[in-house]
């Protein structure tokens, strides 16, 4: 994999950091690559803004920071507003579509939406929305093999929640496969709420 900059952002309590950890772990441990994850929290442990950056590559990562992300995953409106301008031209924007309303069409980006929270709730636990997001990310970006991500999920959550999280991962992944196919022709035709004017 060539050097790819990823930012995952949302608000505290959504499991942003864990999602980033799973991606990094998949690259490092289950894919023999390299990853550097850095994070920043808001002042509050819950509810504040939370953002994690992962750089993945097949060689050791020297400069550890994300400056122009190739992929941005956002799970809150604030994160969308704040980080979308950083995205590389042609970069991928993955949004939690019930949490984020796009303020404008992004013709220069590939935009994909997923109702991760709703999908998580269907599994009975809202808290696994981050892992749904990871599954979606895996399917849409194709950066990492499904199996590597799956193992990383299994390895990153407490044993009691492993099954649930693996189901969340599969659910997000499947949704991503469908959406990826649906959206290949025109990424601007999003199944999202109306754009703000």
């Amino acid at each position: 994999m060539s050097l790819t900059e990823i930012r995952i952002a949302g608000f505290g309590g959504q499991g942003v950091i864990l999602a980033a950890q799973v991606v990094g772990k998949a690259a490092c441990i289950y894919q023999d690559g390299y990853a550097t994850m850095t994070q920043s929290f808001g002042p509050e442990a819950r509810g504040g803004s939370s953002s994690a950056q992962v750089v993945i590559a097949s060689e050791p990562v020297l400069y550890p920071y994300v400056t122009r992300p190739d992929v941005l995953v956002v799970m809150s409106q604030e994160a969308y507003t704040r980080f979308t301008p950083e995205l590389k031209d042609g970069g991928m924007l993955l949004v939690e579509e019930d949490m984020v309303r796009l303020s404008q069409p992004h013709s220069n980006l590939k935009v994909y939406g997923v109702p991760a929270t709703r999908l998580a709730e269907e599994l009975g636990k809202r808290m696994v929305l981050n892992i749904v997001m990871v599954g979606f990310f895996g399917a849409i970006t194709g950066l990492l093999p499904q199996e590597a991500l799956r193992q990383a999920v299994a390895d990153s959550v407490p044993a009691a929640f492993r099954e649930l999280n693996l189901r969340a991962f599969e659910k997000g992944y499947e949704y991503g496969l469908q959406k990826g196919l649906e959206n290949t022709e025109d990424v601007r035709l999003l199944p999202l709420h109306s754009f703000d004017e």
Binding site: G24, T36, M37, T38, Q39
Partner: peptide, 9 residues
């Protein structure tokens, strides 16, 4: 702080 909190292989 950065090296302390940075996660890598």
């Amino acid at each position: 702080e950065v090296v302390g909190h940075m996660t890598e292989k």
